[in-house]
Design a protein around this nucleic acid. Structure first.
Lengths: 111, 111
DNA sequence: GCCGTCTTTTACAGCTTTTTCACAGGGAGA
DNA sequence: TCTCCCTGTGAAAAAGCTGTAAAAGACGGC
């Protein structure tokens, strides 16, 4: 979270992430997220359209080495999906790549 | 999968393998592969135009000694051929060398 | 302490992938 | 041609991964 300042705003479809303000807007409306949720979403959006391993996400968000079998990332992906679904029904932002990890995409395409 | 990072992209005809992104493109379109499929294809493309024994492929992809009579490599070669055929009909990338092993070739020539 | 909120851990069902098996068909040498 | 071994492949069994609810733990405010 410390590194939030200086990170530029990110636009991704109907989402706008402003790390420096700890804020996410969905179609201009603020989305209420917890710290973990915000950081995980930010990490994903910063890596949009790329498959990201749980290990990389865990290191980035939790700031410590990933312990195999830790399910925190999965749980928070679930939380984010729920909130994003509430905010933008029918849309799917976070894709699962079985055996690899997750991928954020604002446009409903690729892979 | 751990060793995926740091491996450079490989181009081979209409294929592009990007191990570091867990991604294979066929004429620019992502090809959906499982972990084993991706690793086996990567191993073959890295050794393109050479006959590779099952033993070598097994050691590389499965990371353990090859047990004689294990058919895993054959099964996965079959899966890859199927998916490549769907993606590029009429093309043959993976050649069988009876009694020796397999060989990947992007150009439709030699044996 | 007691609450409310957030985070971490656990458990399990459901699903996907991987492995194993069996058999048909093919290739090479005698 | 005959025989033996090798390969292709569908399908069943086994293993492994993911989604998710819920329990348990942490932490701060009152």
């Amino acid at each position: 979270m410390e590194a939030a300042l200086g990170r530029p705003p990110l636009r991704a479809g109907e989402l706008e992430v402003r790390p420096s303000e700890f804020l996410v807007l969905v179609n201009g409306e603020p989305l209420h997220l917890t710290v973990r949720e915000l950081e995980l979403l930010t990490a994903l959006v910063e890596r949009r359209n790329r498959i990201v391993t749980r290990e990389e996400l865990y290191r980035e968000v939790w700031g410590e080495p990933y312990r195999k079998a830790d399910r925190s990332v999965d749980v928070y992906v679930g939380k984010l999906r729920q909130k994003l679904e509430d905010a933008v029904p029918g849309r799917r932002f976070i894709h699962t790549h079985f055996g690899f990890g997750y991928r954020f995409a604002a446009d409903s395409d690729r892979t």
